[in-house]
Computed example of a mutant assay.
Amino acid sequence: MRVLQRRLADFAAARRWQPYHTPKNLVSALSVEAAELVEIFQWLTPEESVRVMDRPGAAERVEDEVADVLAYLLQFCEVLGIDAAAALAAKIERNEKRFPVPGRRTEADRSAPDSPDRHSPE
């Protein structure tokens, strides 16, 4: 991802676009591109949406919009100094704690004083 981020930054720099690549402008462009991705799926049934990549014209449009969304997101991260991969990894970790798998006990549960799984020297 860092290679793509650097490539996008170099592309923008060669065209002297940096003055326009403010966080506000980039997040606005990201929003527009995400909406263009949504537009492809707008009137599809759930079943049609699952098979969208089987339709050559639609598949190409989806890939183009995904690329646009990712490009603007990476440029946004570049401008603000965000490591997108690290931010995602941290968010996944927080969500794993926030939304545990139903029925699966956590390490904190197992070490609780009244836990039958607790291994104590008693």
Rank of each mutant, 00 (worst) to 15 (best):
M1R: 06
V3L: 10
V3N: 08
L4C: 08
Q5W: 01
R7L: 15
L8S: 04
A9K: 08
A9R: 12
F11E: 11
A12M: 06
A12E: 06
A13Y: 05
A14C: 09
A14K: 13
A14Y: 05
A14L: 11
A14W: 07
R16D: 12
W17Y: 06
Q18W: 13
Q18H: 10
Y20W: 14
Y20I: 03
H21V: 00
H21Q: 14
T22H: 07
K24M: 05
K24I: 03
K24Y: 06
N25V: 12
N25W: 08
L26I: 07
L26T: 07
L26C: 11
V27D: 06
S28V: 06
S31M: 08
V32N: 09
V32C: 05
E33P: 12
E33Q: 13
E33C: 11
A35I: 04
A35F: 09
A35D: 15
L37M: 12
E39Y: 11
I40K: 04
F41N: 06
L44V: 10
P46S: 08
P46A: 08
P46Y: 05
E48P: 08
S49K: 13
V50H: 09
V50C: 07
R51K: 15
V52W: 10
V52Q: 10
V52H: 06
R55K: 08
R55Q: 14
P56M: 12
P56V: 11
P56I: 15
A58V: 10
A58M: 12
A59R: 15
E60K: 09
E60Q: 10
E63R: 14
E65H: 01
V66E: 00
A67H: 05
D68I: 02
D68Y: 02
D68W: 02
L70M: 14
Y72S: 00
L73K: 00
L73R: 00
L74C: 02
Q75N: 10
F76V: 02
F76G: 05
C77A: 15
E78M: 02
E78T: 02
V79P: 03
G81Q: 05
G81D: 09
G81I: 03
G81R: 07
G81C: 11
G81W: 03
G81K: 05
D83M: 10
A84V: 04
A85W: 06
A87I: 02
L88W: 06
A89D: 14
A90N: 14
A90Y: 07
E96A: 08
K97C: 07
R98I: 03
R98A: 14
F99Y: 15
P100E: 10
P100M: 09
V101E: 09
P102R: 11
P102Q: 07
G103M: 08
R104P: 02
R104H: 08
R104T: 04
R105L: 06
R105Y: 01
R105A: 01
T106L: 05
E107N: 03
A108Q: 03
S111Y: 04
A112G: 11
D114V: 00
D114F: 00
S115Y: 02
P116I: 03
P116T: 03
D117M: 03
D117V: 00
D117Y: 04
R118Y: 03
H119P: 00
H119G: 04
H119Q: 11
P121E: 07
P121M: 04
P121G: 03
